[in-house]
Amino acid sequence: MSSIILSTTIRLLLPLLLLFSVFLLLRGHNEPGGGFVGGLVAAAAISLYALAEGVEAAHRILIVNPRQLIAGGLLTALGSGIIPLFLGRPFQSGLWLPHSLPVLGHVGTPLLFDLGVYLLVAGMALLIVLSLMEEE
């Protein structure tokens, strides 16, 4: 299934959607957004690309296997929980850098956790969608 309209559109939309997903991830702490929706938007972008260009091409632009995304996401989220343990705080305590950074704003372990959720959700959704598409 190849359509010129779809593949031209997705070439423009893909970077935009991915950027939007990162935007959602970053604003998620205090405003609507967050890792979960961000991850879903990213997965939707890649799935659209797979619809237009085929599953092989989607795997190529993804570079890593969706399973590695899941593993990386779990590792990041777990890491964000473990860091406070080394400082004598309970598991998953929120820790923040003293100064806010440009663009990112206040950075702390909750953002790291959200990043983990982002990767995990994107990996999970892509794993399901791509493996179902491969079977067809």
Partner: peptide, 8 residues
């Protein structure tokens, strides 16, 4: 589980 996933 994470380590097992990384060693897929």
């Amino acid at each position: 589980a994470v380590a097992c996933l990384l060693a897929w």
